[in-house]
């Protein structure tokens, strides 16, 4: 092979040119409901862009960004968890325990301290109950599944996924639910044939049964 000249200066070439630059002081993103926070150390948020979903994770003083083009998102999955219920039980037991101890204590100062601690746990319990059930969400692309830790409460998660589904549908088009179910079953059947019938799950129980066909609602309303 002929000799190669040294590389020209990189200033003439920048892949970053392809990235859209927002206006000064403005952001092209819309924040989605739901957030995660680990004290002051870590935070997570999701944002809707014009053509992609942006996942922002902050750890100490570093913000990390991950972008998912709407056209690349293959599926969204929400799984309800028992974490919120377990937390409620633990906080309830602590509130009741400290309350009972405060009730039976003769010392006036000790009583107020214990009742104060009980009130603190009761307040945490109330906040937990108001925030609603807990869940885990993930989006799936051709590369793999990506957890969405900011969507950890069912109510905001469903709202956020509804908004996200609306954008994805606008880009990819819509697939009727019965057709989606048939094609998933078809793929599962082919997979079972390939693997000799392994991992063929039983028919799932639907709880509660859908009262309205999903097609009657907008993508946002369905979630």
């Amino acid at each position: 092979m002929a000799s190669i000249d040294p590389l020209p200066p990189a200033a003439s070439f920048s892949v970053a040119e392809a990235a859209a630059t927002p206006g000064k002081g403005k952001t092209p993103y819309r924040r989605l409901p739901g957030r995660t926070a680990i004290l002051w150390i870590g935070r997570g948020r999701l944002y809707l862009g014009d053509d992609h979903l942006l996942k922002v994770e902050t750890f100490f003083f570093v913000e990390n960004y991950k972008r998912f083009a709407y056209g690349d998102i293959r599926s969204l999955l929400l799984r309800q968890t028992a974490r919120g219920m377990i937390l409620s039980v633990v906080l309830g037991v602590l509130a009741l325990g400290f309350g009972a101890l405060g009730w039976v204590t003769d010392n006036a100062a000790g009583r107020w301290i214990l009742l104060g601690i009980a009130a603190f746990f009761a307040a945490l319990l109330a906040v937990n109950l108001v925030r609603g059930g807990t869940c885990r969400c993930q989006l799936v692309t051709a590369i793999g599944a990506q957890p969405l830790p900011s969507l950890n409460r069912t109510r905001p998660a469903r709202r956020a996924l509804g908004l996200l589904a609306e954008r994805i549908t606008a880009v990819q088009g819509e697939i009727p639910s019965h057709e989606a179910a048939e094609r998933v079953d078809d793929a599962l059947r082919r997979y079972s044939e390939q693997t000799g019938g392994a991992r063929n799950p039983a028919k799932p129980e639907v709880v509660p049964p859908p009262t309205q066909t999903p097609e009657a609602k907008t993508p946002e309303e369905r979630w």
Binding site: I73, L76, L78, A180, V184, P204, P208, P210
Partner: peptide, 29 residues
């Protein structure tokens, strides 16, 4: 592996394996 009955129902459906309630939506991609 979830069957078609779980997908695009927009109501919580029990996972056949672990009974966890799931809501799943698949897109043309």
């Amino acid at each position: 592996i979830l069957p078609g009955a779980v997908t695009n129902t927009f109501e919580p459906v029990a996972c056949p394996g672990c009974r966890a309630l799931l809501v799943a939506q698949v897109f043309p991609a």
